[in-house]
Deep mutational scan, measured.
Amino acid sequence: EQIEAIAKFDYMGRSPRELSFKKGASLLLYHRASEDWWEGRHNGVDGLIPHQYIVVQD
């Protein structure tokens, strides 16, 4: 089940696996990879999304 999230802040990925996005961006989350990271998608690209930078939608 995919979960929708909105970016709270701009984020610049620090490795090829991390996604970069702007504040207000819509993100799709697949699952929680760790306490700090989600596996997800932004603009058709899959990668890691930092939990602290997003708001998960109910």
Rank of each mutant, 00 (worst) to 15 (best):
W38N: 00
R17Q: 14
R14M: 09
F9Y: 12
Q57A: 10
D10S: 10
E18T: 05
L48D: 03
L29R: 01
L27P: 00
S15W: 04
V56F: 12
Y30T: 07
A5V: 13
H42Q: 09
K22W: 09
A33T: 10
E18N: 03
R32Y: 03
Y30N: 09
V55H: 15
H42N: 06
L19W: 00
Q57W: 08
H42S: 12
G13D: 02
R14C: 15
G13R: 09
M12S: 09
W37K: 05
N43V: 07
R14V: 15
V55A: 11
F21T: 01
M12C: 14
I6M: 11
G40Q: 00
E35R: 05
K22L: 11
F9E: 15
K8M: 05
D36F: 15
P16G: 12
A25F: 05
H31W: 10
Q57N: 09
D10C: 09
Y11V: 05
I54C: 10
E18Y: 11
R41D: 05
I3A: 09
L28Y: 12
Y30F: 14
H51V: 12
Q52N: 14
D46F: 03
S34N: 15
Y53S: 12
A33M: 08
W38Y: 05
E4C: 12
M12D: 13
V56Y: 14
Q2H: 14
V45T: 15
P50Y: 14
L27G: 00
G13C: 11
W38R: 01
S20C: 07
W37I: 05
D58V: 06
W38E: 00
G24V: 00
E35M: 07
A7V: 02
Y11P: 00
V45G: 09
I54N: 02
Y30W: 10
G13H: 05
K22N: 11
A25S: 12
L28P: 03
R41Y: 13
I54R: 01
W38S: 02
L48I: 13
E4Y: 07
Y53E: 10
A5C: 08
G13V: 02
Q57L: 07
W38P: 01
L28A: 07
S20R: 05
I6D: 04
L28C: 07
S34K: 10
A7L: 00
L27D: 00
Q52P: 12
G44Y: 04
